[in-house]
Design a protein around this nucleic acid. Structure first.
Lengths: 139, 139
DNA sequence: CTACTGATTGAGACACAGTATCATGACAAC
DNA sequence: GTTGTCATGATACTGTGTCTCAATCAGTAG
């Protein structure tokens, strides 16, 4: 299951949301297009010498707000950003190599209905992460 | 569903794991005993003037390793620590007031079995967070 | 094309959470 | 009590991200 993000998808989404298409943003989008799995903000910074650090973080935050990226925190290591090809999805994180995957499962939604009876309050969202040993780390 | 942590539980667990019961640790344990919901490391620091910052963080890390605390990251605000009365559980986080709750549900485990077919790799753990509007924030 | 205007930028200072270092002090086993 | 080692506290440091602000740019209206 590949989870690449196409540049034109980003451009359209960002423009539709009323944001300007600047050179720095285009450069970041172009870089993200080839990204797969999780990456850190600093990787983007290093790869794009001409773009300011603040701009990189601002743009990542923008893309998260528009639902094109996710941010994953982990107890170990730095936060990871991942592309969000599917509108709604969940993540697998390899506990050995840190690689991030993405999956979608409708039974999660069914689960929530079942759980909601035990919860005081109303559920407005959720986050499910699976910690795995990925196929490469097993072999 | 109250999720208080009793001091004697902590003392036993920490001693069993071969750690020393120092004055600073006792002070932190005593404070945690009354804690409910999520709290930040800095709250502990402020409440315990005599204990060094590093020691507070070291002790929180220790308790996480021994399974007595959980650490929750959120997109907004600082990381929250929560007591883990149940061995395994999940969290509810109020998107309005930030209050953290805890629940247990066996259907989550059933869900994982169903999902595991779609995942490449073997599942070794998971994390489920529900974002809610808590009963106080609704009313 | 030109001018306008507010969004965006880059540089650097800053904020915050947490860790590393290391000399000093405390725990607990004997 | 003595002793070995684990833990502490002060402080410096790292890493991740935000704030500030003057300068610049993108998109639009004329």
């Amino acid at each position: 299951m590949t989870t690449k993000l196409r540049r034109e998808d980003i451009l359209a989404a960002v423009e539709d949301a009323g944001h300007r298409l600047t050179g720095s943003r285009r450069a970041i989008f172009e870089l993200l297009e080839g990204m797969e799995g999780g990456f850190s903000a600093e990787e983007i910074n290093l790869a794009l010498g001409g773009v300011g650090r603040a701009t990189v973080y601002r743009t990542l935050r923008l893309l998260i707000k528009e639902g094109l990226l996710c941010k994953l925190f982990s107890d170990e290591g730095s936060p990871k950003y991942t592309v969000a090809k599917f509108g709604h999805h969940h993540h697998t994180i390899c506990v050995s190599c840190g690689k991030v995957g993405e999956f979608r499962d409708s039974s999660v939604e069914r689960l929530l209905k079942a759980v909601s009876a035990d919860i005081e309050g109303t559920i407005v969202g959720h986050n499910l992460e699976l910690y795995v040993n990925c196929s490469e780390c097993i072999s």
